[in-house]
Simulated scan of single mutants.
Amino acid sequence: DIIIVDEAHKLKKYYPKGQPNARRHLREGDEEISLLEKITDGLVLLYDPYQGIKPQNISPSEIRKLTKNYVNMQLMQQFRIGGNSSFTGEDFLNGILYGLQLSDDRNFNSDVFKGEYFRIVDTLKEVVDYVDDYSHAYPKTTNRVIAGYCREWVSNRKKKINKGKKYEELPYDWHVGNVLKRWNSTDVDWVKKPNSENEIGSIHAIQGYDLNYSGVIIGNDLTVKNQKIVAVLENYKDIGGIPLKDGFNLSELTEYILNIYYVLLSRGIDGCAVYFEDKSVEKLFKERVGL
Rank of each mutant, 00 (worst) to 15 (best):
Y167V: 13
R267E: 00
T67N: 04
V274C: 03
K225T: 04
D221I: 00
G290T: 06
N162P: 02
V5Q: 12
K163W: 14
N212E: 15
S266F: 07
K286C: 09
W183Y: 13
G82N: 12
T254V: 03
T88G: 02
V5E: 11
P49L: 01
L97C: 02
G240A: 06
N69K: 06
R24D: 10
K165D: 13
P243D: 05
L258M: 13
Y209R: 08
T141L: 08
L291F: 13
A137L: 15
A231E: 02
I33A: 07
S185A: 14
D105M: 13
N178K: 14
E152L: 02
I217H: 00
E282T: 05
K286E: 12
R64F: 00
L180I: 04
Y47K: 03
L43R: 07
D270F: 15
K193D: 11
K228Y: 05
I260T: 14
Y134S: 10
Y117S: 00
R267Q: 04
V71F: 07
G177P: 10
Y213W: 08
G268T: 06
L35M: 14
P139E: 14
G95V: 02
V274N: 00
V281H: 00
N226I: 01
E116W: 00
K163S: 09
G52M: 10
R80Q: 08
Q51I: 07
L170Y: 12
N198I: 10
E152W: 02
L45P: 04
A273T: 06
V71W: 11
D187G: 00
G268D: 06
K286S: 05
I257N: 01
E255Y: 07
G215T: 02
N178F: 07
K283T: 11
K166F: 10
R267S: 02
Y256N: 06
N259H: 06
G89H: 03
Y70F: 15
Y98H: 07
V44R: 09
F248D: 05
A8C: 05
H25Q: 09
V191H: 08
Q51F: 08
K237W: 10
W183A: 12
V176W: 12
M76W: 02
S110H: 02
K159H: 12
I53R: 10
K158G: 07
V230I: 14
